[in-house]
Simulated assay, not measured.
Amino acid sequence: MSAFQLHNLTENVPDSLAGGVVAIGNFDGVHRGHQVVLGRALNEARKAGVPALALSFEPHPRTLFKPQSPVFRLTAEQDKAGIVEAFGMDGLLTLPFTKELAGTEAEAFVTDILRGRAAASHLVTGFNFHFGKGRAGSPEFLQEVGQRDGFGVTTVEAEEEGGDAISSSRIRRQLGAGDVAAAADLLGYRWRVGGTVVKGAQLGRTLGYPTANLALAENCRLAHGIYAVRLRRADGSLHDGVASFGRRPTFDNGAPLLETFVFDFSDDLYGERIEVSLFEHLRGEEKFDSAEALVEQMDRDSEAARKALAAATPLSNLDERLSFDRNV
């Protein structure tokens, strides 16, 4: 197959992606349950010698219907594309989720979008996937239309952990509690965020701890605290570090930032897109009586992060590619 492709499904897919096996879903987080759906699509595609594609929606449907309370996104579109590519898929199709799309009849959604614009030869969905006006479309509906019109449909059952289905909502709750290890178990990889490094107040430099700062989405509900992390640069190289996510209560109690101190590193990262994988929650955010007391704690945090990262092992092949493969 050719290089991984991103395609906005407002237009027909290019010829290089036509006839593919298409896995459909929101795929927010691309967790282990999603990966079963993607894996089935990948297997079907490889057997047939056609592209393996994921089809997702932007924005998240819940954000469209409840803009006053936008959903905490586990993976922004660009981050999702990187994970889907690392999983082995050939492309990500993004379908703009609008009120017009939500009002599309189920039959038209299949005929015009899935079979038309996406040119799918086979569809793979989770057991609870519904679509079209009034959510009338269902896996059973897809099976019926597939038998009638001559295309394949595969439905994947829920993936469970601890007796409950793996879901993006579970993972959001775990991240909100700072339990990045439990979230990683359900994701099958260390949760990661991406973005462009911005300038902060540069307080870290005065303390001997210069940081690469990311302004995360306003609806990010990650617990404020200190984390052992691994940072991937735009050139693909990986670097260990320790990060603080929060409002810097010792200094300004300002807008939340993810501030990453990279070990044994002196390059300038301003303006560069990076990805940060969170390995372990070390402690909650605290206010210190002095800068000196804060630096002493940061020294301890750095040592704890080094130990945690040195002991870490990949959770899966996907985790290895995302957070352990140091080949540039």
Rank of each mutant, 00 (worst) to 15 (best):
D15W: 11
S16Y: 14
A18F: 07
G19N: 08
G20I: 02
V22F: 04
V22C: 07
A23Y: 00
I24D: 00
G25Q: 03
N26P: 05
F27H: 06
D28Q: 06
G29I: 12
R32H: 03
R32M: 06
G33S: 05
G33Y: 01
G33L: 03
H34N: 09
H34D: 07
Q35R: 09
L38P: 08
L38H: 09
G39A: 13
G39D: 12
G39K: 14
G39W: 08
G39R: 10
R40Q: 12
A41K: 04
A41D: 05
L42P: 11
A45G: 13
R46S: 10
A48S: 12
G49N: 08
V50W: 13
P51N: 04
A52D: 01
A52G: 08
L53V: 12
L53D: 09
A54I: 04
A54G: 10
A54C: 12
L55C: 14
L55K: 07
S56G: 13
S56P: 13
H60F: 09
H60Y: 04
L64Y: 13
L64D: 14
L64G: 13
F65D: 06
K66M: 13
P67Y: 10
Q68I: 14
S69Q: 07
S69D: 08
S69F: 04
V71R: 02
F72S: 08
F72M: 13
F72Q: 04
